[in-house]
Amino acid sequence: MLVIAVHGSSAPGATIARLVRALDRPALIAHLDVQRPSLADVLARNPGAVVVPLLLGEGYHRRVDVPAVARRFHCTVTAGLAGEPDVARAVHDRLLTAGGPGDAVVVAGAGSTRPHGNDGTRAVARELSAAHPDIPVLDAYCSAAHPSVRERVEQLRGAGFRRITIATHLLAPGRFTHALDEIREAIPGVHAVSAPIADHPLLARLVLNRYESVRPEVLAA
């Protein structure tokens, strides 16, 4: 069984449901926080499952929380999504749909205090910078890490940029995406905020690739 571990949100929407439908195979959703069912509840009913962490960073959940729960139920955990080129491509596609990069881009990630926890956001910023070499593309974070998105936007405004796009390196709507919308409304010069990426077709393909990469080992065990 494929189990997709997601963070969970106080503002759940249809984004994750669209991802599951796009997989075209049975899959269960398990939550790490806020929502139910929890990862432990799902794995207790499906021992030996393959867990794909739908997480864009290598923070606490990916490195500590998910593996610890999976071990209790003899489940296999795949690699997360941090640093995958398809993640950057999905963020870039959403950026173009939102109206393009403008004269500067802030790549907004969730943020983590753990070593390597923000590497995924930095990787997306590098990929977008390569795609748009004539404008600044800078990373920023919604919590836990610095600079914050607001700080980064103000830095760019202070440098004279007046058409700044926030490229959302987040999976689904929630308090962080709401905060980004508030920044757009409050600060002149932020002309667009791109949509989160969990329901982008590239993410569905990536989740299936993660699952298929370990499935033969699970069947042979």
Rank of each mutant, 00 (worst) to 15 (best):
G99I: 10
G57W: 11
V153H: 01
R63G: 05
V69I: 14
I164W: 01
R71W: 14
G80K: 12
A220C: 14
P101F: 00
L206R: 01
R152C: 05
A22W: 02
R25W: 01
L156Q: 00
P26W: 10
P201S: 03
G158D: 11
R71S: 15
I197Q: 07
A44Y: 11
R126E: 11
L171R: 09
R63H: 08
G189V: 02
R175S: 12
I166L: 02
G158A: 09
A179G: 08
D139A: 14
D199I: 07
S213C: 08
H169G: 00
V51D: 05
Y211M: 07
A172N: 10
A179F: 07
S9T: 12
A159Y: 12
P85L: 06
P67N: 15
L156Y: 08
R21V: 10
D119R: 13
A186Y: 07
L170E: 10
P12H: 09
D119E: 11
A192P: 02
M1W: 06
P216W: 12
G102K: 01
A40Q: 11
D181T: 05
Q35K: 04
H191M: 03
A88P: 02
R94Q: 08
I29E: 00
P85K: 09
V106F: 05
T168C: 10
V69A: 12
V20H: 09
E212N: 15
P196C: 06
R126Q: 08
R45N: 12
R114F: 09
L202V: 01
A110E: 06
L203C: 01
S10P: 13
G111K: 00
R89F: 05
T165Q: 00
H116K: 12
P53N: 09
A179Q: 11
T165F: 02
L28R: 04
A145H: 00
A130E: 08
R25L: 03
L95E: 06
A98I: 03
H146G: 04
G99R: 04
I183L: 14
M1G: 05
S112D: 10
P133S: 08
S10C: 09
P133W: 06
L81P: 11
P188N: 07
R25D: 00
G102A: 04
A172E: 02
L208H: 05
T113G: 06
A110F: 08
R210V: 13
S213D: 15
H146S: 08
T168D: 01
L2K: 05
A82E: 03
R45Q: 14
A27N: 06
L156R: 02
G59E: 10
A104H: 01
D24H: 10
C75Y: 14
G160R: 03
L54P: 04
L180M: 08
L32G: 11
A110H: 13
